[in-house]
């Protein structure tokens, strides 16, 4: 009985501030929408020779424009509802369809990136020469703005006949292997000297030390890295969709929205991307908790 109130208490003390700040953000959003859209609305009134408009009329009209500078939250919500629930999933107007396209290349890139990252980390931990020579390049590889050259990679890979999922996944891979490598190098090195010495007294070989000591103790690091990696994979997939000429995917929705001035479409694609990112990170956190619990490492 004693633990329960404190638990709900901590839940309360966490949820209330987050809720307040979220509500404040939405309120600011509404105010900003009115202010940013008002000039165009006034212009419209003038052209329609309407001089006796009231403030309340202005406010309600600024929040209901077709192509507002900043759409109001409820407009975005309605657009998302219309393009997810009301549309057939296979329809090209369904955001779920576009989100699925983006999600599939995100997942593929994330998977390859994580495997590559772990592989590199294992090599680096076991070979001093590779640690000294490869590690600096792993770090400086991320100073290349890969997102910026993503269009070229897509176009070039298209030219040699690699199309569809793989080019986009390649960009996600490039972005996501880095946090995994860095985190896993740290994780595989995390066992303390006492444990390594203990393994030596058991006359364990490198293989045993790796599987029975280094791997288990690197698990928390792996999950932390994977949370960063999956978020960054999603960014890579979205940017990778920009140059394909707005065919499909959330990035394509962004691009076609910006071509035709459909701000509501841009914002709804952004919000769906945000929700997707949040879900993916939450799923990894959940997996993290479950695995650590099975391994007896959670507190």
């Amino acid at each position: 009985m004693t633990s329960k109130p404190t638990h709900s208490d901590s839940m309360f003390s966490k949820v209330l501030p987050v809720l307040t700040v979220s509500l404040a953000i939405i309120a600011i959003w509404y105010v900003a929408a009115v202010f940013l859209n008002a000039p165009i609305q006034k212009d419209k009134y003038e052209r329609a020779k309407l001089s006796d408009w009231t403030i309340s009329q202005l406010v309600s009209d600024t929040l209901a424009q077709d192509r507002p500078i900043l759409p109001a939250p409820h407009q975005v919500a309605v657009e998302i509802y219309n393009t997810t629930v009301l549309k057939n999933i296979t329809s090209k107007r369904s955001l779920i369809y576009h989100a699925w396209i983006t999600l599939s290349s995100t997942m593929l890139g994330f998977l390859i990136g994580t495997l590559l990252g772990i592989f590199l980390a294992v090599l680096i931990v076991h070979n001093k020469a590779l640690e000294k020579s490869l590690m600096p390049w792993v770090i400086s590889s991320q100073t290349i703005p890969i997102l910026a050259v993503a269009p070229m990679i897509i176009v070039v890979l298209n030219a040699i006949g690699v199309q569809g999922l793989l080019p986009k996944a390649f960009i996600s891979t490039y972005l996501s292997f880095f946090p995994v490598t860095v985190g896993m190098v740290k994780g595989l090195r995390s066992p303390e000297v006492i444990y390594l010495d203990l393994m030596r007294t058991f006359s364990a070989n490198r293989w045993d030390v790796f599987w029975k000591l280094r791997c288990p103790s690197s698990t928390p690091y792996l999950f932390t890295s994977m949370k960063i990696a999956i978020a960054i994979s999603l960014v890579g997939a979205i940017v990778g969709e920009l140059p394909t000429g707005a065919v499909a995917g959330l990035g394509a929705r962004l691009l076609s929205g910006s071509y035709y001035g459909q701000t509501i479409q841009i914002w709804s694609a952004l919000i769906v991307a945000a929700v997707l990112a949040a879900i993916l990170v939450a799923l990894i956190s959940l997996a993290n908790k479950m695995v650590l619990k099975r391994m007896g490492m959670s507190h």
């Binding site: 997102l147 949370k227 960063i228 978020a231 999603l234 960014v235 979205i238 940017v239 959330l250 990035g251 962004l254 691009l255 929205g257 910006s258 841009i266 694609a269 952004l270 991307a273 945000a274 990112a277 949040a278 990170v281």
Partner: peptide, 9 residues
């Protein structure tokens, strides 16, 4: 964790 680059347009 969000794809903020998306606000570019």
């Amino acid at each position: 964790a969000l794809p903020i680059v998306g606000v570019a347009p």
